[in-house]
Design a protein around this nucleic acid. Sequence first.
DNA 1: TACTCTACCGACCGATCGGTAGGTAGTCTC
DNA 2: GAGACTACCTACCGATCGGTCGGTAGAGTA
Lengths: 201, 201
Amino acid sequence: MKKKRIRRDRATRQAQILETAARIFCEKGFDKASMENIASATGLTKAGLYHHIGSKEELLYAIMAYGMDLFENRVLRKVRKIRDPLERLRATIHGHVLVVTRDRPKEVTVILHESNALKGAWKEKIDVRKRRYIHFLESTVRELTRAGVARDVDPAVAAFALLGMINWIYQWYRPGGRLGDTQLADALTEVFLGGILKQPA
Amino acid sequence: MKKKRIRRDRATRQAQILETAARIFCEKGFDKASMENIASATGLTKAGLYHHIGSKEELLYAIMAYGMDLFENRVLRKVRKIRDPLERLRATIHGHVLVVTRDRPKEVTVILHESNALKGAWKEKIDVRKRRYIHFLESTVRELTRAGVARDVDPAVAAFALLGMINWIYQWYRPGGRLGDTQLADALTEVFLGGILKQPA
DNA sequence: TACTCTACCGACCGATCGGTAGGTAGTCTC
DNA sequence: GAGACTACCTACCGATCGGTCGGTAGAGTA
């Protein structure tokens, strides 16, 4: 019996490949996931998969870029408009935590865990976007310090401390457990703001 | 011209292999580091390397176990004796940060980054030791809450927030930079304690 | 119907991997 | 000096990998 292969149009396959590859990279890690794994999970052969993508590394880049798009559209774009730095920081933490726990855990996990698998120009393009976010956090902290709301904390340390808290979540948090995602977001907001502000919120 | 091979005794080679392999796993990642890489960096052939170790995975386990030994001896063993929970927590944070930044960055990085490369019994043995540390942190936080010193924060969230801050350090901190390691330890202590205590220290 | 476009496949390639069998040459013991 | 021990090497194996080549079949167009 011959396997029935399904033909799809370009855009549909591209989306399906990104989704599937993100899942498999996330489960097995970039190096241990073979292109054959991804191809068959997509309902294609390896050669068929290569009709749509250029290389394994390009596929990884596409997943990361998609994850960054999502983060920037869903979090950064909205909070940049907020004038009050305290409210801006609150909204950022809340949004970031929810992206990590609820929206696109696979793409985010890949970004966090496989960043060293990317090289050269591709790595640089992702790193630039990460750095932009760090600077955004740092300058928000600086604003709070200048306004006398926050203690005189090193903005870089504060930014990386926050990033560490949030980016570590994927290592332990499992949705559907005892802790809800908004609860987690609130708790982390409280810890971080308590840590840098002069008086509790 | 024949290469002169150097003979060493068991213990010396073992230590040298662990050290070298930790460096290479750390630089290239577990999957991309080949046994040939490690062998030649040790001054051996691959077969010569296999005279000393059982498998690539066992080597990874040995590195992680060594890193955990170090952490437990240098941090946990000393702070467990401290009666006052606040002082105990302070000493733990300080010690943990210094292990990550100063003592054994390579072994620690391997533990943090390659934990999924281990499987079955080996993974479980490392995970048990990690979990013991988490429980230690949680119960210290619980003590502080019961004593009325800390706010009524979820001990698990607090523990993982702290772990996230500290374990993220290896992603961005470079020794010899603007920031000293004790400075960093103090700053993170301040942020975390400020985040969970009722009043600033 | 004939031509084109494109999504896809079967079969294959060279490279590299973790790991091993069997031998060799120093060193230690008596 | 004989024998045992052990640290190590040369040469090799089967498996798997990322990637490619030369097609093929179905849908769209004229």
